[in-house]
């Protein structure tokens, strides 16, 4: 069986995506759920780079530019997400997702 490099990269990113998905679904600690989502975002970035490197139209640097934007937005997401985690912890003394079921603090 011969796989093209592009396919290998896609397999790699989908494996990473699924690890992130399983983590986000199975863990009840909010921080780990956020980290799982972060992992899924990273897997998407890998796809952009893979298609830029091995895809049919590599000339345009769009893939690279998009990953840069994606990294910036992911950093913003992490900052807000973890600030929310800290705010929730202050109200509930706990960051288990199941117990964060009230909108009013």
């Amino acid at each position: 069986m011969s796989l093209s490099p592009l396919q290998l990269c896609l397999l790699f990113s989908s494996a990473l995506f699924c690890v992130g998905l399983i983590g986000a679904l199975s863990r009840s600690n909010t921080i780990l759920v956020l980290l799982g989502i972060e992992l899924m975002l990273n897997a998407a970035n890998i796809n952009f780079i893979a298609f830029w490197r091995f895809g049919p139209a590599p000339a345009a640097g769009t893939g690279v530019v998009f990953v840069l934007f994606s990294i910036a937005v992911a950093a913003a997401e992490a900052a807000v997400g973890l600030a929310l985690v800290i705010a929730v912890y202050r109200h509930q003394k706990n960051i288990r997702l199941q117990e964060a079921n009230r909108l009013k603090g």
Partner: peptide, 8 residues
């Protein structure tokens, strides 16, 4: 989670 992840 494992089932969903495995399916995906």
């Amino acid at each position: 989670a494992l089932l969903v992840g495995g399916a995906v």
